[in-house]
C-alpha cells in the first residue's frame, strides 16, 4: 500500500482543506467521504487491511447519515431563499462558498504548512508512524480544529470534529490496534455524526421559522 501513500496524503490535504474552505454541504459530504477512503488507504500501511476497510465503511455510513439529514434540511439552504432566486441565478449559484473565501483558503494553506513542518520535527513526529501518516494526522487534527474555530453551524462543526478524529485515529492506530478500540472509535464517529445531524436539523427548523431576507 505504500506506493499509494503520497497520492493519498495529497488527497487528504485537499479534501480537508476543502472542508474548511466551503460551507456547501453537498461539496463537504463528497470531500468527507473521499477523505475517509483515503484515510483508510493510508492507515492500511500499519494495520490489517480488514481494519482499514472497516474504517472506510464507517466513513461511508457517517456520510450516509449526513446525507439523509442534508436531504431533510435542504442541504443547509433556506427554502425561502431558493424561491427568491430566479431560475438562471439558481443554476449559477449551484454551490455556496462563504464570504471569507480568500481568508479561509490562506488559513488552510498556512495550517497545512505548519502541520507538515511540525510532523517533520524529530521531537514531535509520532514514533512508529511512517512520515506520510505523521503529516496526515497532524494536518487533519489542525484543519479539523481550524474548521471548528470558523463555524458555529452544527453540520460543518460536525465535519470539523470528524476530521480531527480521523487525524487522531491515524496517530492512535499505531499505538492501539485492538479490535475493541476500533469498534469504540467507530461508535464515536457514529455518535458525533448523529448528534451533529440532530443539532443541524434543530437549527434548520429554527431558521425556517424566521422570514427569509
Amino acid at each position: 500500500m505504500s506506493q499509494f501513500a503520497t497520492p493519498a496524503l495529497v488527497g487528504i490535504l485537499i479534501t480537508a482543506a476543502l472542508l474548511v474552505i466551503t460551507n456547501d454541504w453537498r461539496l463537504s459530504f463528497a470531500a468527507l467521504v473521499v477523505q475517509y477512503v483515503l484515510m483508510a488507504a493510508l492507515i492500511a500501511q500499519i494495520v490489517l487491511w480488514q481494519v482499514a476497510v472497516v474504517k472506510a465503511l464507517v466513513g461511508v455510513l457517517v456520510v450516509g447519515i449526513f446525507s439523509l439529514t442534508g436531504r431533510q434540511a435542504n442541504f443547509g439552504r433556506r427554502a425561502g431563499v431558493d424561491l427568491l432566486l430566479s431560475e438562471s441565478l439558481r443554476s449559477f449559484v449551484r454551490f455556496e462558498f462563504p464570504t471569507g473565501l480568500p481568508f479561509r483558503f490562506l488559513a488552510a494553506v498556512m495550517t497545512i504548512v505548519a502541520a507538515a513542518y511540525t510532523a517533520s520535527q524529530p521531537g514531535f513526529a509520532f514514533p512508529g508512524l511512517p512520515p506520510t501518516l505523521n503529516v496526515a494526522s497532524y494536518a487533519l487534527l489542525a484543519l479539523g480544529l481550524l474548521n471548528l474555530g470558523l463555524t458555529e453551524e452544527p453540520m460543518n462543526a460536525g465535519m470539523g470534529l470528524l476530521t480531527g478524529l480521523m487525524g487522531f485515529e491515524l496517530m492512535y492506530a499505531a499505538v492501539e490496534p485492538s479490535l475493541a478500540i476500533v469498534a469504540l472509535l467507530a461508535a464515536v464517529n457514529f455518535g458525533v455524526a448523529m448528534a451533529t445531524s440532530y443539532l443541524a436539523l434543530l437549527r434548520y427548523a429554527a431558521t425556517e421559522k424566521e422570514p427569509p431576507g
Binding site: 458555529e152 469504540l184 464515536v188 455518535g191 448528534a195 443539532l199 437549527r203 427548523a205
Partner: peptide, 26 residues
C-alpha cells in the same frame, strides 16, 4: 471513549426542540 459516546447521546437531551438554540449542546 465511553464518555465521548455518552456525550454524543447527551446532545439529544440538550437540544431544546421548543427553543432550538444549538450553541450549548454543540
Amino acid at each position: 471513549l465511553f464518555l465521548e459516546i455518552a456525550a454524543a447521546l447527551a446532545v439529544f437531551m440538550l437540544g431544546d426542540e421548543a427553543r432550538p438554540v444549538t450553541r450549548g449542546a454543540l
